[in-house]
């Protein structure tokens, strides 16, 4: 995997994690987003979008050897999740 492909894969996986985070109730509460009748639909759309973006990341990363590249994607997904959890931890909840 070249450096460019790696950077692109990492950015895409990070975006996928962020999109998934936006679909979670406690994250939405942190940003003061109120529940509306369309919330459920928004959540489904966001999660589907996150999966599509992750799929795109896997496609970007696949160069010649499939198994190491898929392993890299899964590990990047795990590590990005921890990074986002740490970032979210330091964001104070907005009082509505």
């Amino acid at each position: 995997m070249t450096d460019t492909v790696l950077c692109l894969t990492e950015a895409t996986i990070f975006a996928s994690c962020l999109i998934w985070a936006c679909s979670l109730t406690f994250v939405r509460n942190k940003f003061g987003l109120q529940a509306t009748p369309t919330t459920k639909k928004q959540i489904i759309v966001l999660r589907l979008l996150a999966l599509v973006v992750f799929g795109r990341a896997v496609k970007i990363s696949l160069a010649n050897s499939a198994i190491p590249d898929i392993a890299i994607c899964i590990m990047l997904l795990s590590i990005n999740s921890i990074i986002i959890a740490l970032l979210l931890c330091f964001i104070e909840k907005k009082r509505s």
């Binding site: 998934w20 985070a21 979670l24 109730t25 406690f26 994250v27 999740s81 921890i82 986002i84 959890a85 740490l86 979210l88 931890c89």
Partner: peptide, 24 residues
């Protein structure tokens, strides 16, 4: 799913430890 990114380091020690345990 709902708790996937949950990490409360500013909460009590037991809560923080459980969050770290579940998150990792």
């Amino acid at each position: 799913m709902p708790d996937y990114f949950t990490l409360r380091l500013k909460a009590s020690m037991a809560r923080s430890l459980l969050d770290i345990h579940v998150l990792t």
